[in-house]
C-alpha cells in the first residue's frame, strides 16, 4: 500500500510536470520576446519552392530546408564576442532599423553607431593597410577592417571581421565597389 502511495505521488508529479511544461510553452509563445524584421530578407515569399523554374543542382531538399528556416534567421544575432557592452538582442539590427535611420538605437551611443555602421549610414573612411587597424579591438577593429576591405576592394579582408552582420555588410560593400 505504501508503494502504491508513492507510485501515485510520482505519477502526480510527472503529470503535473508535463502539464506545467505545456502551459509554459503556451505562455512563452504568448508573452515571450518575439523580434520582428530581418536585416536582409524581409519580404521574399518562400522564393525557393514550387515556382523555381531552373532547379538547383545542389538539391532541392536542402534549399527547401533553408527556405523553411528563413524565419528563424530573423532571430540570429551577430557574433557578439566583440567586447560590445550590451546584450545581443539590443544589437539585432533589422532592415526596418536601416529604413528608420537607426532611430530605435539613439538612446545608446554604441548601439547607435553599430546600427549606422551595419546600415551604411557612416561613409567608409579610406584605410591604407592592416596596420591602421592593429591597435583597435572589438567592433572598432571590425569597422576598421571593413573600411580597409572596401579601400583595397579585397573581400578576403572581410573574413577577418568578427561580427557577422558587419562581415556581411563588408562583403556586400566590396561587391558594390568591384562592380562599380
Amino acid at each position: 500500500m505504501k508503494n502504491f502511495k508513492w507510485i501515485l505521488i510520482v505519477g502526480f508529479v510527472l503529470i503535473a510536470a508535463v502539464i506545467f511544461g505545456y502551459a509554459y510553452t503556451i505562455l512563452k509563445d504568448r508573452y515571450g520576446h518575439n523580434p520582428s524584421g530581418n536585416f536582409n530578407v524581409n519580404r521574399v515569399l518562400g522564393v525557393n519552392e514550387s515556382n523555381s523554374v531552373l532547379g538547383n543542382q545542389n538539391g532541392n531538399a536542402e534549399n527547401l530546408n533553408q527556405n523553411e528556416n528563413g524565419n528563424e534567421n530573423l532571430n540570429q544575432n551577430g557574433n557578439d564576442n566583440t567586447g560590445f557592452n550590451t546584450n545581443s538582442s539590443d544589437k539585432n539590427v533589422t532592415g526596418k532599423d536601416c529604413d528608420n535611420d537607426c532611430s530605435r538605437f539613439r538612446g545608446n551611443q554604441e548601439n547607435y553607431k553599430y546600427c549606422q555602421e551595419v546600415c551604411g549610414d557612416i561613409p567608409v573612411s579610406k584605410k591604407n593597410s592592416e596596420e591602421d587597424c592593429t591597435n583597435l579591438t572589438g567592433l572598432e577593429m571590425d569597422y576598421c577592417l571593413r573600411d580597409l576591405a572596401v579601400s583595397k576592394q579585397d573581400t578576403t579582408i572581410c573574413d577577418k571581421i568578427s561580427d557577422s552582420k558587419l562581415k556581411t555588410t563588408c562583403r556586400n560593400r566590396v561587391a558594390e565597389e568591384l562592380l562599380n
Binding site: 502539464i19 503556451i26 509563445d29 504568448r30 520582428s36 530581418n38 524581409n42 519580404r43 528563413g70 524565419n71
Partner: peptide
C-alpha cells in the same frame, strides 16, 4: 488553467507562416 490558456493561445498562436505573410 489549460482550457483558458489553450483557448487564448489558440487565438494568438501566430505561426511563422502567418508572420511571413504579415511581414510581406
Amino acid at each position: 488553467f489549460l482550457v483558458f490558456y489553450s483557448g487564448e493561445a489558440e487565438a494568438s498562436s501566430i505561426t511563422k507562416w502567418q508572420k511571413m505573410l504579415e511581414r510581406n
